[in-house]
Structures are given as structure tokens and as C-alpha cells.
Design a protein around this nucleic acid. Sequence first.
DNA 1: ATTTGACCCTATACCAAGTATAGACTTTAT
DNA 2: ATAAAGTCTATACTTGGTATAGGGTCAAAT
Lengths: 134, 134
Amino acid sequence: MKIGEIADITGCSVQTIRFYERKGLLAQPKRTEGNYRIYSKETLEQLIFIKQCRAHDMSIQEISYLLESRETPEQSCDSVNAIINEHIEQISAKIEELNALKASLNKMANSCSANRKIKDCGILSNLKQANFPK
Amino acid sequence: MKIGEIADITGCSVQTIRFYERKGLLAQPKRTEGNYRIYSKETLEQLIFIKQCRAHDMSIQEISYLLESRETPEQSCDSVNAIINEHIEQISAKIEELNALKASLNKMANSCSANRKIKDCGILSNLKQANFPK
DNA sequence: ATTTGACCCTATACCAAGTATAGACTTTAT
DNA sequence: ATAAAGTCTATACTTGGTATAGGGTCAAAT
Ligand SMILES: [Zn+2]
Ligand SMILES: [Zn+2]
Ligand SMILES: [Zn+2]
Ligand SMILES: [Zn+2]
């Protein structure tokens, strides 16, 4: 298969596939005489795996670790669990952070209701307040 | 005040302040004879405003619009409201997305419990599944 | 008077995870 | 034979900074 085909199948762009190759997520593929990349079914499956990981917002490095671990199928999958659990923790922390931001923003939005002029806008005066950790 | 002072006061790094200047969030300040930047109290307050906006995860462009609007204090603050509300929408959407990701990741994490070998790991086999929008 | 140290200056490169060109080459279709 | 579509490499751009390198400035200590 040529690069455009696996791009179509997976929904990754051609540039993204070449980018993953540069980053080491995909091995250097064989080439045709005309220097076109040629992919095997296995590489296509690996790209699908990568796509699923990215869809779960895993970093290139996390995906690297997972791909690496797939090369030792007889070993314990504890490391896989560790990566996923840590990633879930990251996402949970981000959700908490965004919920706090949203609450603060909503509070600000509610502080604009009366005068409706820029100079009196509660939103802008809220944003002027310093909020330094002592 | 010199740049290091307002960096200390606001908690922005010196590089970040220079970065904001390049991005147009802060005007070109006056300089000493030795070419050091000199800041007024007003600029310090503007930097605090910017910091508060960034703490609410607003983009440089959104902050630009807010700073611009502050220059027409007699005008209606509808545009300010629009920016904040749109930003709240962005954050809400992101929260939804992360909640969905987290649910999917938790489901995956639960699928690893039995064999504890890489080749049988439910997490990895989940990630192998293609999930293409038809 | 000079040297040290702390600060400041510009310019440039780097990070993630791609996206978007330019300019050339290969292959396919008409 | 030519045009269109696909591919190639290399490079620049995105966001919000961070981290250097290689200088210049300024105050205090020697
Ligand atoms: Zn992660
Ligand atoms: Zn208002
Ligand atoms: Zn926003
Ligand atoms: Zn497992």
C-alpha cells in the first residue's frame, strides 16, 4: 500500500504519517524504485493503534512505550496499566482544572448585567484584580 | 520599574513579558540610556490583567480584544460578554470531550484484569480496534 | 580603579503534535 | 504526449511560552 491509501483508511493525513515516522512511531518503510513508501498490513494496523491512542489524547512518548511493550508479549502488562492509569490521572486533573476555570468565568459573566458600558463592566473589573499567591 | 521588578510582582517570567511585548499585548516601553525597559504603574496593571486572563486560559488574541475594548470605555460591553461567553463554551466543550475520553479510558483499564500478560492485555487489544466514522 | 555579580539586551532555537507550503519527481489517465 | 494526481524532501508556521548564547549595563566590594 502507498501512503495515500493508508491515509485514507485511517483518516491520518499523509504529512502526519510521515511525521510519525520521523518521531519513531512507525519504522522506516520499504520503498519502491521511485522512492515511494510501501506499507504492509502490519504497519497499517500499527497506525490504527497509534490513531486510537491519539484519539485518547496520549502523547507520542506514551504511545512509544505502549508500542515498545507490544514487542515483549510474554511479559507482564503492569507497565501498560501504569501508563493508562497515569494518563487517566492527567485527564482527571485537567477536568478539575477546567471545571474550576469555568466556575470562575461564569461568576465573572454574571457580574456583567447592570450598566453595560465598558468602563463599568464587571467582567473587566474582575480581570483587573491581582490574585497573587502570598 | 525595570522588567525584573514587574516579573517578581506579577509572577510572569522576564522572557514572558518580553514575549507579550512582541505579541502586542504590551506596548513598547520607554528605555533608559542603557536600553533597559522602564515600566509605569499602568503597564504593571495591564500585565496583571493579562495574567488573570491567561489564568482563565484565554488566548493571546482574546486578550488582545479585551485590551482593545478597554480603550473605548463609553461603548457597550456586549463584545466583552461575547468573548467571555464564547470562551466558556470552548471550555465546556473541552470538559465534555475529556469526560468522554476518561470514560473510555476507564473502560479500557477495567478490561485488563485477568491474564496480566502483554499478549492478552485487554487494554492493548482495545487500542487495536479500528473505530472509523463511516 | 577594577573586578565581581546581578541584572538586562537581542537573537535564535526548542517543546508538542501536527499543518502548510515550495519545488521537484513519479505514476496514472487521457 | 501531455496533463493530472500522487509522492518526495525540506522548510516554515502554529501556541504560549522556555532556554540558550553572547553580549552590554550598573552597583557594590575590593
Ligand atoms: Zn498522558
Ligand atoms: Zn459588561
Ligand atoms: Zn477562548
Ligand atoms: Zn493488561
